[in-house]
Design a protein around this nucleic acid. Sequence first.
DNA 1: CGGCTGACGAAAA
DNA 2: CTTTTCGCCAGCC
Length: 121
Amino acid sequence: MKLMSARKQGKKESNDNFFQNVYEVVKLVPAGRATSYGAIASYLGLKRGARQVGWAMGSSYSVPGIPAHRVVNKEGVLTAKQLFETPTTMQKKLESEGVEVKDDKIQNWNKYFWDPEKELT
DNA sequence: CGGCTGACGAAAA
DNA sequence: CTTTTCGCCAGCC
């Protein structure tokens, strides 16, 4: 018996909603804009759980409907480009949407940055 | 069940 | 300024 992981027996409802939240937020990101893992994490309440956001995305980057290329780290760097079919896919998509990308980084990041807490309120 | 890892991020040294 | 450590939480060995 037992076993099965008693990971946090506590609980909190499973919280798959965390993943669902991430997907929803990412899908809400308008074209020509981008957001950061930390922003999403903070919006969901995981203030320092940016890694989980990225991890969640990793599982979703292959999920259709998730504009993963619009999600970058807080510096505006395309950290996930390596996970795409080609290391340039992500940049191309962003540029296609009107985002300036240079050296794998979004230019005017502050201007393209889309904060769910501010935009969605 | 224990330990390591990971699309990150911020604070501490 | 740079480097290191901690936190967060789920998946995998």
